[in-house]
Computed example of a mutant assay.
Amino acid sequence: MRFLTAVTALPILFSSYFVQASNQHITELVNAAKSRTLVQITYDGSYRRISYPMGDVPAHIGVCTDVIIRSYRQLGIDLQQQVHEDISAHFDSYPSNRIWGMKKPDSNIDHRRVPNLQTFFTRHGEQQAISNQPEDYLPGDIVTWMLPGNLPHIGIVVDIKDPETQTPLVVHNIGQGPEMDNSLFRFPITGHYRYMPDINI
């Protein structure tokens, strides 16, 4: 479902992470993620050549990683460039060769792969503990899962929670376009991250 008919606003609580990342930026990221659910997207993960930096696949297509990329981009944060620069300098730290047999970075696709984003957020964000406690997941948190068939997946926690379970909702694209739903604990969680670089306004 794209929006639940009955939801409860989730207050944004701040840890040490949010001392560095302002309330405004986290709110903007969450709002950007929620706005993705208003866009009609056809799930299409085919390889495409795109511009660099700030490159993107056609606006009407996308996969789970594009929800994250496009949400951050609304804040002026270009994960394509940031991932490409990091993987170019630290190629062996990324799983590109092990998983896909790549010999060098590729700015067309590297940032659109969940394992690469996991590596980037681990290296440059704050890696959080994985738990089954809803209160451990804050608005703006990035979560990765392993879907059936060993398919990696990624989404973002927002500031709304399910009124029955009190679980924060997530925005993700699991095949039917970006949607906001109660999927945080639906699949095994493989990663939990917080990432907000300095933004000059």
Results as ranks from 00 to 15, higher is better:
His25Ser: 15
Ser46Gln: 11
Ile61Val: 15
Tyr52His: 12
Pro115His: 09
Met196Pro: 05
Asn200Arg: 15
Leu151Ala: 09
Pro197Thr: 09
Arg113Thr: 08
Gln118Glu: 15
Asn23Arg: 14
Gln74Arg: 12
Asp106Trp: 09
Leu151Ile: 15
Thr5Trp: 13
Gly55Asn: 05
Tyr72Pro: 00
Gly55Leu: 02
Asp86Pro: 03
Glu135Ile: 11
Asp198Ala: 15
Ala32Tyr: 05
Met180Ala: 13
Pro168Asn: 08
Met54Lys: 12
Glu179Pro: 01
Thr42Met: 00
Arg186His: 13
Ala59Tyr: 11
Ile154Met: 01
Val19Glu: 14
Tyr47Cys: 00
Lys34Arg: 14
Met196Asp: 06
Asn132Tyr: 10
Val30Leu: 01
Phe91Gly: 07
Leu75Arg: 08
Leu29Pro: 06
Ile174Asn: 15
Gly62Ile: 01
Gln24Met: 09
Tyr94Phe: 11
Gly101His: 07
Ser88Arg: 14
Asp78His: 05
Ala9Arg: 13
Met1Tyr: 10
Asp44His: 10
Tyr43Met: 05
Ser71Arg: 00
Lys34Phe: 00
Val83Asn: 01
Gln20Arg: 15
Asn23Phe: 15
Asn173Asp: 15
Trp145Pro: 00
Ile26Phe: 08
Phe121Ala: 01
Asp141Arg: 05
His90Ser: 08
Asn182Trp: 07
Leu38Val: 12
Ile130Pro: 04
Thr42Ser: 11
Pro134Ser: 06
Asn200Met: 11
Leu147Gly: 02
Asp44Lys: 11
Pro178Trp: 02
Asp181His: 11
Gly125Glu: 07
Cys64Met: 06
Glu126Gln: 14
Asp106Asn: 15
Ser22Cys: 00
Phe18Thr: 12
Thr144Val: 01
Val143Pro: 05
Pro134Leu: 05
Tyr17Gln: 12
Leu147Thr: 01
Ser15Glu: 12
Leu29Asn: 04
Val158Lys: 00
Thr119His: 10
Val114Gly: 10
His192Leu: 03
Asp110Ser: 09
Asp44Met: 07
Asp78Val: 01
Thr190Gly: 05
Gln128Arg: 14
Ile201Leu: 13
Gly177Ala: 01
Arg70Trp: 01
Pro105Thr: 03
His90Tyr: 09
Asn182Thr: 10
Gly191His: 07
Ile12Phe: 08
Ile12Asn: 06
Gln133Thr: 14
His124Ile: 02
Pro178Ile: 02
Gln40His: 13
Gly125Ser: 07
Pro11Val: 07
Ile77Trp: 00
Val170Asp: 05
Lys161Ser: 10
Pro168Arg: 05
Tyr137Pro: 02
Lys161Glu: 13
Pro58Gly: 06
Ala89Phe: 01
Leu169Ser: 03
Asp86Gly: 04
Ser15Gly: 10
Asn182Gly: 06
Gln74Asn: 12
Thr37Asp: 03
Val19Ile: 13
Asn97Cys: 07
Gln166Asp: 14
Thr8Ala: 12
Pro197Ser: 09
Gln81Ile: 02
Ala6Trp: 12
Thr8Ser: 13
Leu79Gln: 04
Pro58Ser: 07
Phe3Ala: 12
Phe120Leu: 06
Met1Arg: 10
Leu117Pro: 05
Gln176Ser: 15
Leu10Gln: 04
Ile69Met: 03
Ile50Val: 13
Lys103Arg: 12
Asn31Cys: 07
Ser22Gly: 06
Ile69Phe: 08
Ala32Arg: 00
Ser183Leu: 14
Tyr195His: 08
Pro53His: 07
Asn182Ser: 10
Asn23Gln: 14
Val171Asp: 02
Ile201His: 15
Ile174Pro: 11
Gln81Met: 14
Val57Pro: 00
Met102Ile: 04
Thr5Phe: 11
Gly76His: 09
